[in-house]
Design a protein around this nucleic acid. Structure first.
Length: 425
RNA sequence: GUGCCUGUAGCUCAAUGGUUAGAGCGCGUCACUGUGGAUGAUGAGGUUGAGGGUUCGACCCCCUUCAGGCACCCCA
């Protein structure tokens, strides 16, 4: 056998059983998004590199994007994120769109990273945004969308938590500690490290970034202060609203959530798996200048993004992925010989029109082999059509799960199949 | 970019430096000419990732290289 050309590093093959899980997950995303009145959109997977250069910074484009020149010598990139595309699309029609807009999307993205658990080079991301309002209600709604997704997919507040903070609040707190503006991006990273390092390591790391000992001590107090939110009007209002949205049990204040991105200006949030791995599932927040960078008017919004890779890991850990996802055929029609093949095909046609997912064994073969095939495909019902049945206007129906078999009149076939099929098909 | 681990049958894995590299699962055929999963019999399937070295002898030890996994870095 010739050697099989391997798949590209960091990509995934979706066999039918994998695809069924993806479909299931995406359907819930679609359902929740639509339920809140969001409209689906999408952009191209290919964009000019300039689109990202304007906004995302050098490092992302140079080191993590798939960049190449087209035959026409344009510098193109496989989109590493959706936000710049969204910004462009909004800017292009800024006088046409009815604001506030509620848009969502799911599609493939590419980043040239070192693949490892929970991280691939090709992945899917759910993006959802509410653009054109500064109301805190919008922040609450977006968080409620995330919480409702968790609820619907089967993750409880004990299994997953959305941690919320406010960038402005943290900026004020940093100002009180007299941490300079220039140092703050680094300080964000310091804060982010707190849960990963020991106290001593963390202090050393913090001092290393240029903070004074007093500042380090102050910072430590700050990021351990779970009541800090009370100093922020926005957060007080947000938490009240989250109660109204009936998602408060999924949400918790956390002063250590800041998000690396510079463009977040108010509310920031990240959902984490609770317990063992504690992986970040989704993240988002409020931003001030979505479209200004690509030449539009100032527009604020709030949104989040969720990758499918970590999400699926978490769902697996939680054991909430259904065993049966209903992507298998339901009925197999057996074929006795060349003469009866046409009868089998006609019967299958009838079953399909009646709404059953039906396959026909493609050629005459031993019944045993046909059953074995059906069994391998996890098909529940076999319809047996041989010369005896044809001449008597009957049909044999076998429940492959229970081995029960009955011979009935043709007109009773649909009812019989319905009886043999497992519930909830 | 850095570090650790792993590459043996289609899959999951064995095999003190010593005969012809094995097992389970899967696959083919038969027992079974209109009835599957079980059982039994039997068969196919390998350049041990690749290249070099040490050795009387290498799946095993050493070097190089390729690939994969995991962690760090980073995470828009």
């Amino acid at each position: 056998m010739a050697e099989i050309i391997r798949s590209v590093k960091g990509t995934r093959d979706f066999y039918p059983q994998d695809m069924a899980i993806r479909r299931w997950m995406f359907d819930i995303i679609r359902e929740v998004s639509a339920q809140f009145g969001y409209q689906e959109y999408d952009g191209p997977c290919l964009e000019f590199i300039d689109l990202y250069a304007a906004k995302s910074g050098e490092e992302l484009v140079k080191e993590q994007a798939f960049v190449f020149s087209s035959p026409g010598d344009d510098m193109l990139t496989l989109r590493p994120e959706l936000t710049p595309t969204l910004a462009r699309m909004v800017a292009q029609q800024q006088y046409e769109i009815a604001f506030p807009l509620r848009w969502w999307s799911i599609g493939p993205f590419w980043r040239y990273e070192n693949p490892q658990r929970g991280r691939t080079r090709e992945f899917f991301q759910w993006n959802i945004d509410l653009v054109g309002t500064e109301s805190i209600t919008a922040d609450a709604e977006i968080i409620a969308v995330a919480a409702n997704f968790f609820k619907k997919i089967g993750l409880s507040p004990q299994q997953v938590k959305i941690f919320v903070n406010n960038r402005r609040l943290m900026d004020q707190a940093f100002a009180k500690l007299e941490i300079s503006q220039a140092l703050r991006p680094k300080v964000f990273r310091v804060v982010d490290k707190l849960d990963k390092l020991s106290v001593k390591e963390w202090q050393a790391y913090a001092l290393d970034t240029g903070l004074s000992e007093i500042q380090v001590a102050g910072l430590m107090d700050l990021v351990k202060n779970e009541d800090l939110w009370q100093e922020s009007e926005d957060l007080c209002e947000l938490f009240e609203l989250l109660k109204v949205f009936e998602v408060a049990d999924y949400v918790q204040y956390n002063p250590r959530v800041i998000r690396g991105l510079d463009y977040y200006t108010g509310t920031v949030f990240e959902a984490f798996e609770q317990g063992g791995q504690s992986r970040a599932i989704l993240g988002g927040g409020r931003y001030d200048n979505l479209v200004a960078d690509v030449g539009g008017n100032r527009l604020t919004g709030v949104g989040f993004a969720m990758g499918d890779v970590v999400m699926e890991l978490v769902l697996r850990d939680a054991g909430v992925i259904p065993e049966k996802l209903g992507n298998t055929p339901e009925v197999v029609v057996t074929v006795f010989d060349e003469e009866t093949l046409v009868e089998s095909l006609k019967l299958a046609l009838f079953l399909r029109e009646s709404g059953f997912k039906t396959v026909v064994y493609p050629e005459p073969d031993k019944l045993g082999k046909q059953f074995k095939y059906a069994d391998r495909l996890d098909i529940s019902v076999a319809v047996i059509l041989g010369p005896d049945e044809i001449s008597s206007g009957q049909v044999a129906v076998k429940n492959l799960k229970t081995r029960e078999q009955v011979t009935i009149k043709r007109e009773d076939l649909l009812e019989q199949i319905g009886e043999f099929l497992p519930m909830g098909r």
